[in-house]
Design a protein around this nucleic acid. Structure first.
Lengths: 347, 347
DNA sequence: TTTTAGCACTCTACTCTTCAGAGTGCTAAG
DNA sequence: CTTAGCACTCTGAAGAGTAGAGTGCTAAAA
């Protein structure tokens, strides 16, 4: 399907409709555009053009005698080829960066702060999704003997993330045995992604050098750690301030979706081909309950070349230029946190 | 203020009003009670008693020609002296315990599962609050040298919780120096609650045995770790199913509160004098936005004799007997997870 | 050929009224 | 002390009327 080309006037009027509707949340009338946007055209002329835009599918009328509101298709061309993504002011950039000062650069804390900062600066719902641990590269494993029945396995990931796992053991192992185990493990596996380690570790032959029982237990438990993607959400209740969500029927399905973390993670995670910042408008997300929402998302990079996602969910009637700038800039800020100079222990 | 004593009939009718209202969410009429509850009394007689109950403050009328609904005071006597807390069926107990089978006994995962289980079995909002780390006893500190610029500090808490902290250092420290630092630290501090360690560590004299600079840095960073209480919430959108929350004005303030995790933690955390299971009805919680809600909460015990809280938040019109049983039982199940036989490394 | 003024038409949203139904309080009889 | 009966009150739904906003169309003006 080829999108019909709009002439200059049609573009101007569509842009005016989008911007006016985004401010007021009410259908935009021809008179309003004639009055508020200096086009040198009368309301009647604008009416004609609006009828054209409606035929082309860019705007629609809630009812016969109402103004126009943009369709998803209308928003799509606006986002793709009309809006000018404004650079954030220094003040706002500072504000975003300041949001992180209190944090200890602890991974979880950064994620939490991110969702909060995104929601507070955008006034919509902020979301941060951790990278999939499974794809992440193991830098080193450390084993510590806790007591006669437990070992603590510490996984230092190349990304800077640290994960623990308590491993129950039956035999009492000496400190030497424990450190030998970690040495063997690291010789085999340090530098590989967890996923691959998991696959390889199933081959028993790998451990023929060592009495297989305790080693197998340790490996098994170590690798069975929670590899879930974590999702951090903040500012969901900002939706209550949006007039078009002033109705329970409108807002309930949305909150039901936001409570299913895995679904939110899928929603935010871009197809691997696409990097950078994207906008999903309305039903483009393909998510039931999110038809009235748009998503602005962006990738960040952790050190092990892992990618996580952050984003903002708001009403379709969203301040796109601003939100795109915020999400993009915040993703850059996070990526910096994970840059070698700051967090390197993967020399 | 002494609560007036109710006679048997008044008690029966109050109980009937509470139970009927809890089922229907609509004001209860005298006729309905006469018909549905076998009291051998006519509607007129019940009306008289209802008027008495209203004078005493146990029930109220939304408007002159409507039935009665219980007041907070009415719910209070119901919860305190009328309802019979039913024992959960074996099936339900099983269901709760099964909710944990997939989990690795990892602390965070148990908390997440708990909020989910509470919400799914109660059909209200389930909440789990971790114990305050600050009060928690440190079992042992381990230091691992990561690279020339970073040490990893691992805090093994007596409760079974494990926390990490990456500590940046300036001098390159040998493995022996690192292990000597942890030895000194443990000699001084193992077995003490974090809070006390924090206070003592401020006295420089404590470290006179060791070149104070690197040690001080390590101690400072180690103790500055995120000691926040974590709050896990699930099933908040169950409120949408409650007819009395069918209005944005009713549900918005509630969701605003649920988004402020610290506030939820305060709400759930009982005054230290009270253990066991408690019910907070309506404005008893003293929390703005929660006037239409009740809270059922219970403590669980971690191994270091630390106490966390779990609970359920639902409408004042809540199935109290059932929810109290659920919360109580779930708290017992969690406490078992932390029992020495399963998780001991604090010999 | 394009733009605009004018006008009839349509639809919404608000207000007002009416009316049935539900439930009470009161009174007087059982 | 209990109950039947009845007048009274209040809600909520349904219907009618109205003002206002906005459109589409037509015919004149540029």
């Amino acid at each position: 399907m080829t999108t019909p080309v709009l002439d200059a006037r049609q573009r101007n009027i569509l842009e005016a409709i989008v911007e006016c509707y985004n401010q007021t949340a009410e259908p935009v009338s021809s008179r309003r555009i004639a009055r508020d946007y200096e086009m040198g055209l009368s309301a009647a002329t604008i009416r004609n053009t609006m009828a054209d835009l409606e035929d082309l599918g860019y705007v629609t009328q809630p009812h016969t005698s109402a103004g126009r509101i943009p369709t998803e298709q209308g928003y799509r061309v606006y986002v793709d080829s009309m809006m000018t993504t404004e650079e954030l002011s220094l003040r706002e950039k500072q504000r975003i960066q300041d949001g992180y000062v209190s944090s200890n650069r602890d991974f979880e804390e950064i994620m939490e702060q991110t969702s909060k900062i995104l929601s507070e600066t955008s006034h919509y719902t902020g979301i941060a999704v951790s990278p999939e641990l499974d794809e992440s590269v193991l830098h080193r494993l450390e084993l510590i003997s806790i007591d006669s029945k437990h070992i603590l396995a510490i996984l230092l990931m190349a990304s800077g993330v640290v994960k623990n796992q308590v491993v129950p053991i039956t035999d009492n192992l000496s400190d030497e045995e424990v450190s030998r185990m970690s040495r063997i493990f690291n010789e085999k596996f340090a530098g590989l992604p967890l996923k691959q380690i998991r696959q390889t570790a199933q081959l028993k032959a790998v451990f023929d050098q060592y009495p297989s029982e305790p080693m197998a237990v340790v490996v098994h438990h170590t690798l069975s750690l929670d590899s879930e993607i974590h999702v951090y959400i903040d500012g969901a209740s900002n939706f209550f301030s949006q007039p078009e969500f002033g109705d329970i029927q409108k807002i309930e399905p949305l909150f039901r979706v936001l409570e299913r973390k895995e679904q939110v993670a899928d929603l935010l995670s871009a197809p691997p081909s696409e990097f950078g910042t994207q906008v999903l408008i309305g039903s483009e997300s393909g998510c039931e309950g999110m038809e009235m929402c748009s998503i602005v998302r962006s990738n960040y990079r952790t050190q092990g070349n892992q990618f996580g996602t952050i984003g903002v969910i708001g009403p379709t009637r969203m301040a796109y230029p601003r939100v795109v700038s915020i999400v993009k800039f915040t993703a850059e800020v996070i990526s910096q946190f994970f840059e070698p100079s700051l967090m390197n222990f993967g020399g």
